[in-house]
Amino acid sequence: MPVGRQGNLIVRSSKSVPDSELRAKLIEQIKKEKKPYGLYFEDIAGGFTLTLRNMPQAFQIMPLMVWKVYPDGRPDELVRGVDIIGTPLAALNRIILTGTKMDVFNGECGAESGSVPVSAAAPAMLFSEIEVQKVAQGHDRPPVLPPPGFEKTQTQTAKQGGR
């Protein structure tokens, strides 16, 4: 049965700074809050929001690339195992400002009425506060044997960028 769904969701901001200045604004905020570090979410795998009346109205986002940003000039540090959680109204009220460059997400969104194609467009956003939690992790042993063709060498890790 069809239900009300997202089509092209476009988020525009009336309080923005050029993207090149966002990092400085983040560090400024970290210092103001007297935090040891802030977080920069570069990329996410996806997320979901519970919308049923009998469940808490909460969302969870699964980031892929998360960096710790230090206010003292140390290089950023890549971290893993972090999920963003919260409730939509509380979280969205903590956006301080945004960047100017819009990015477009085209993908599939799943809900009661199935998967539908959707788009979302938004600039980068700076939050004064966001809640994160540790990801539940599996404890599967890695494969016993090295992959075929790599019996004598160590497994190489990618040095180049890319998602």
Binding site: R141, P143, V144, L145, P147, P148, G149
Partner: peptide
Amino acid sequence: ETALRHQLWLATDKAYK
């Protein structure tokens, strides 16, 4: 061959465990 063996490797590992 590489792609075939790679999948066999993972499936064998899973089946052994």
